Computed example of a mutant assay.
Amino acid sequence: MATGAERVARRPDEAMRLAWVDVAKGICILLVVMMHATLGTGEALGGEGFLHTVVAFAKPFRIPDFFLLSGLFVGRVIDRDWRLFADRRVVHFAYFYGLWVVLQSLAKYGQITDGAGPSAFLAHLAHALVEPYSTLWFIYLLAVFSVVTKLLRRLPAPVLLAGAALLQIVPLATTSYLLEEFCARYVYFVAGYLFAPRIFALAGFVRSRPVPALAGLALWALAEAWLAFTPSGLPGFPTLASLPLVSLVLGGAGALAIVAAAALLTRIGGPVTAALRACGSRSIVIYLAFFLPMAATRTLLVKTGWVPDIGLASLIVTSVAVLVPLALERAIRGTVLSFLFRRPPAFHLVGTAVEAPARPVLRPA
């Protein structure tokens, strides 16, 4: 999801200002891939490992943070004309969604058609236009969130935020996955859009005051763990963290905690920070392509029994699912296959400079 945040900043302060964004995205994409890899591996091997604990801890904030980061820079383009806005916030996402829906579906052709042939496959693709498919729902929703926010931008900020929060709090049961996820996630995108200056100010404060920031993160982690692992005793709400209103608060608090952690990491630097920033700067590459190496590695480990420990197996599957897409993007960069991660000029509504490889939306251009 290409953005200006991926462009090289001209000033050192701006470069540092954007560095934490990539680090935060890196943390988020690792948590997302870890969740899919760990739960799938655990199911295939019939048990749980140490990464299941990490996945459960991160559940309340993993996706909220991604959407909050995605809304950070939408304010810079929201008042532009619809043609430019649609090119950067709709067509961009639609291109990668459509392309990778076809690719992912082809990889699962037999499972999708179940012997019914091409007509069933085409019906599946048609359905994917109205209901987001598989892991690609995130990209689909980013386009939807962007359009809805532009349409509602004249509303007073408190009204917009309160309405989005109400959608998240009120339980909704529907057959539409798109509608359910819209209601559950839109508030975080709106929060990123409305509070972008304050979120950047928070990152700056954390970098200048690391000791109180670390203390705050420690308190948050304790509260997060208690709520995420304590059963609620209520049907439909497995933990305290899943309760209405509590989940909203934890999602926002966790998103800000990731912002703070990312800001601290950029202050410290080092190879871990560099690796997270590299993952964050190519997070859409990982997001689009992790499913196939993840499934292949999981199948190999299950069939060979090479790694008996479920936690270690989950870690291996996660690592391969992250590294293979990055290696693939690097290998095809500048070749005829670069369209997999780079939107070709033919799919632009307005003229554009040479586009960097696709990356998650932050500062639309």
Rank of each mutant, 00 (worst) to 15 (best):
residue 3 T to S: 15
residue 4 G to C: 02
residue 9 A to W: 05
residue 14 E to W: 04
residue 14 E to A: 11
residue 15 A to V: 03
residue 17 R to G: 06
residue 19 A to S: 03
residue 25 K to W: 04
residue 26 G to S: 02
residue 27 I to H: 08
residue 27 I to G: 08
residue 29 I to M: 08
residue 30 L to K: 12
residue 30 L to A: 02
residue 31 L to A: 15
residue 31 L to E: 10
residue 34 M to Q: 12
residue 34 M to H: 04
residue 34 M to F: 10
residue 34 M to T: 06
residue 35 M to A: 08
residue 41 T to N: 00
residue 48 E to N: 01
residue 52 H to S: 13
residue 52 H to M: 12
residue 56 A to L: 12
residue 58 A to D: 11
residue 70 S to Y: 12
residue 71 G to D: 08
residue 74 V to N: 01
residue 74 V to G: 05
residue 74 V to Y: 14
residue 75 G to Q: 09
residue 76 R to Y: 14
residue 80 R to W: 04
residue 81 D to Q: 12
residue 82 W to D: 04
residue 83 R to K: 11
residue 85 F to D: 00
residue 85 F to M: 07
residue 86 A to P: 09
residue 87 D to Q: 05
residue 92 H to G: 15
residue 93 F to P: 03
residue 94 A to D: 10
residue 94 A to F: 11
residue 95 Y to G: 14
residue 96 F to W: 07
residue 97 Y to P: 01
residue 101 V to W: 02
residue 102 V to P: 06
residue 103 L to Y: 11
residue 105 S to I: 08
residue 105 S to W: 02
residue 107 A to G: 15
residue 110 G to K: 03
residue 112 I to K: 05
residue 113 T to W: 03
residue 114 D to P: 13
residue 119 S to R: 15
residue 124 H to P: 07
residue 128 A to N: 04
residue 131 E to W: 09
residue 133 Y to R: 07
residue 147 V to L: 08
residue 157 A to M: 14
residue 160 L to K: 00
residue 164 A to I: 02
residue 164 A to F: 05
residue 167 L to K: 10
residue 168 Q to G: 15
residue 168 Q to V: 07
residue 169 I to P: 10
residue 172 L to A: 15
residue 173 A to R: 10
residue 187 V to P: 09
residue 192 G to L: 00
residue 193 Y to N: 13
residue 196 A to V: 13
residue 204 G to W: 10
residue 208 S to L: 14
residue 210 P to S: 10
residue 211 V to G: 01
residue 211 V to M: 08
residue 214 L to A: 09
residue 214 L to P: 04
residue 215 A to Y: 15
residue 222 L to R: 13
residue 235 P to Y: 03
residue 238 P to A: 10
residue 242 S to G: 11
residue 244 P to Q: 02
residue 244 P to A: 13
residue 248 L to D: 13
residue 248 L to R: 05
residue 253 A to T: 08
residue 255 A to I: 14
residue 255 A to K: 07
residue 256 L to I: 06
residue 258 I to D: 00
residue 259 V to H: 00
residue 259 V to F: 05
residue 263 A to F: 06
residue 264 L to A: 04
residue 265 L to V: 01
residue 268 I to W: 15
residue 270 G to D: 07
residue 270 G to R: 04
residue 276 L to Q: 09
residue 277 R to Q: 11
residue 280 G to A: 08
residue 281 S to I: 07
residue 284 I to K: 02
residue 287 Y to R: 00
residue 288 L to C: 07
residue 288 L to H: 06
residue 290 F to H: 13
residue 291 F to D: 11
residue 296 A to P: 15
residue 297 T to I: 04
residue 297 T to Y: 03
residue 298 R to W: 11
residue 301 L to N: 06
residue 313 A to L: 03
residue 315 L to K: 01
residue 316 I to A: 06
residue 321 A to D: 11
residue 327 A to T: 12
residue 333 R to F: 11
residue 334 G to N: 08
residue 337 L to N: 04
residue 337 L to T: 06
residue 342 R to V: 15
residue 342 R to C: 07
residue 343 R to H: 03
residue 346 A to N: 09
residue 349 L to N: 14
residue 351 G to F: 02
residue 358 A to C: 09
residue 360 P to L: 04
residue 364 P to R: 05
